[in-house]
């Protein structure tokens, strides 16, 4: 299980679960921690959460599959969430998406050939003043232009390559 979570984090969660009145409340935290470590939550991640918190695997899966920011399928190293809600849409989110799809050579829901990017839509990011916007990892970018997008992608590629 160690590839899912570093030992110290695992111990921390176990300790928290032990003294919590309702260990179940840690499900989302633990899922997020596993995702941070692995990029997504594989099946044995669900089992690990169930095990650490003393709940049933179905109970974890019921929660995990509800949230759109928990990935239960493998994703690229970076997930690009393109906002398609009204403010971004009114400011050209469809063009942003087109540009990203062309540049990365993938459709929504797919992962680029190099395994670096997965492209997903998202609802409003709370960046309505900076529309159109996207979120990669936990960082929000906006307002986007084709140039800005290329620049962001390049930065991330460099970071990942180096």
């Amino acid at each position: 299980m160690s590839e899912l979570l570093p030992q110290n984090q695992l111990d921390e969660f176990k300790a928290k679960a032990n003294c919590a009145d309702h260990p179940q409340e840690l499900i989302v935290d633990l899922l997020r921690a596993i995702q941070t470590e692995c990029g997504w939550v594989p099946d044995h991640g669900i089992d690990l959460v169930a095990d650490v918190l003393g709940v049933l695997p179905v109970e974890v899966e019921e929660v995990a599959t509800f949230y759109d920011k928990i990935y239960r399928y493998p994703v690229g190293k970076r997930v690009i969430h393109v906002c398609d809600s009204v403010c971004c849409w009114a400011n050209g989110s469809e063009d942003v998406l087109d540009h990203l799809q062309k540049t990365l050579g993938i459709n929504l829901g797919q992962t680029s050939a190099d395994g670096l990017f997965t492209l997903l839509p998202t609802c409003c990011l709370g960046a309505c003043g900076e529309a159109p916007a996207m979120m990669i990892g936990l960082t929000t970018y906006g307002p986007l232009t084709p140039e800005r997008i290329d620049q962001v992608l390049a930065e991330i590629r460099e970071e990942a390559g180096g």
């Binding site: 669900i46 049933l56 695997p57 179905v58 109970e59 899966e61 019921e62 599959t65 509800f66």
Partner: peptide, 16 residues
Amino acid sequence: DFGVFGSRNRVFFGRY
């Protein structure tokens, strides 16, 4: 060993 998965108009009922 049975639960409710997913959301909106894609709720799934079954096993993990």
